[in-house]
Amino acid sequence: MVSIENFGVSFGNTKILENINFDVKPGEIVTILGSSGCGKTTILRAIAGLQKEHKGHICIGDECVSSKEIYVKDREVGYIFQDYALFPHLNVSENIAFALFKLSKKEKEKRVDELLEQFNLIDHKKKQIHQLSGGQQQRVAIARALANNPKILLLDEPFSNLDAMLRYKTKIWLKNLIKKLNLSAILVTHDKKEALTVSDKIGVINNKKLLQFDTAQEIFDNPKSLYVANFLCEINQLPNELIKQLDLKIEDSEVAIIKIDKSIVSLEKSNIAVKIIDISFCGDYYELVIELTNFKNHTLIVKMQNISNLNILDNAYLHINKKDIKIINK
């Protein structure tokens, strides 16, 4: 449904994005993940037609909507902004109806009533926006975005203003809605947990480039670079000298990583001596900060369920299964 080809954006002489390529199928949720300011929202704005100047192509269905000849074409896009962008001087019904300016008054009223019912907003239809909770405001924003039956839904940090429990419930509800309506959805966020729990596919952006684009599980299990691994997982970077001692091959351009829950610290001897620098209780697990005895100033974090007999400043040993070590590009 959506195809981004060789996409790039520059503001003056400053390149923001370059050579971005990805597709979104109907019923698929794709998340663009990256740090603040990396250009995620710029991609959404360009798909919606709000960012006009860019390189490359944006195609919806079989048509390239970024060409000058058909730029004004209705893109069948619904956009949910980070701050919802609701009109404070309009009530709930009027905010939703704002997107239906092409319909007759009767048709507009019918569609608004359908959306109020669908999004459980009937009891709030005449309320002003400031009278609603954050979750209710978000539902109004989503209802407005879907009012014209778009084929594409663009979501810019849609859960950032919600508390933890409401965020969790809303993610499930919205994910099911997207699947039910068979929409092509593109979400931008800097929250890795949000990306992993919602997405069919994830693209990670850094330094103007799309570093990796794959299914959520594949990109989590097999990151192709240190940046992607650090962004999506909790990892330790192991010294190259240690990797060679473990009889694993590694090039100077590569690094060895292991997830922090894939190592064990104990008093039982191994070939990797460590000193325990700190122990933190984190509820249902402990985090240990350790220093590798033979690699001074190289510290690791280890996540463990049980730390019996271990204390701060103990000399202990690190146990690693070689199959859990991944060799990736820097």
Rank of each mutant, 00 (worst) to 15 (best):
94 E>S: 01
96 I>A: 01
96 I>E: 00
96 I>H: 00
97 A>P: 00
97 A>L: 05
98 F>S: 09
99 A>D: 12
102 K>R: 15
104 S>W: 15
106 K>Q: 11
107 E>R: 14
107 E>C: 07
108 K>Q: 09
112 V>T: 12
113 D>C: 06
113 D>E: 04
116 L>Y: 01
116 L>G: 04
117 E>P: 08
117 E>R: 09
118 Q>Y: 11
119 F>T: 09
121 L>N: 10
121 L>Q: 13
121 L>M: 08
122 I>L: 03
122 I>F: 08
123 D>K: 08
123 D>W: 09
123 D>M: 01
124 H>F: 15
124 H>C: 13
125 K>H: 10
125 K>I: 01
125 K>M: 01
126 K>N: 04
126 K>P: 03
127 K>P: 02
128 Q>R: 15
129 I>A: 03
129 I>E: 03
129 I>L: 00
132 L>C: 02
132 L>S: 06
132 L>P: 03
135 G>I: 01
135 G>H: 02
136 Q>D: 02
137 Q>D: 04
137 Q>L: 08
139 R>G: 04
140 V>D: 02
140 V>R: 09
141 A>I: 00
141 A>D: 03
142 I>N: 02
142 I>F: 01
142 I>C: 05
143 A>R: 03
144 R>I: 01
144 R>K: 02
145 A>Q: 08
146 L>E: 09
146 L>N: 11
146 L>F: 05
147 A>G: 00
149 N>F: 06
151 K>F: 10
151 K>A: 02
151 K>D: 12
152 I>M: 13
152 I>T: 10
153 L>I: 00
154 L>C: 09
155 L>V: 11
155 L>M: 03
156 D>V: 05
156 D>M: 10
157 E>Q: 02
157 E>P: 08
158 P>N: 11
159 F>E: 10
159 F>S: 03
160 S>V: 09
161 N>I: 01
162 L>T: 08
162 L>E: 10
164 A>W: 05
165 M>V: 12
166 L>H: 02
166 L>E: 02
166 L>A: 05
167 R>N: 08
168 Y>S: 14
168 Y>I: 06
168 Y>V: 07
168 Y>N: 14
169 K>S: 15
169 K>G: 11
169 K>A: 15
169 K>P: 11
170 T>C: 10
170 T>E: 07
170 T>S: 11
170 T>L: 08
170 T>N: 10
172 I>W: 12
172 I>K: 14
172 I>Y: 09
172 I>S: 12
172 I>N: 09
175 K>I: 04
178 I>G: 12
179 K>R: 15
179 K>H: 15
179 K>E: 15
180 K>T: 05
180 K>M: 05
181 L>H: 14
181 L>I: 13
181 L>Q: 15
181 L>N: 15
182 N>C: 07
183 L>F: 12
184 S>V: 06
185 A>N: 09
185 A>T: 13
186 I>F: 13
187 L>A: 05
187 L>R: 03
187 L>G: 06
188 V>E: 15
188 V>L: 11
188 V>F: 09
189 T>A: 13
190 H>E: 07
191 D>M: 10
191 D>P: 09
192 K>N: 04
192 K>L: 01
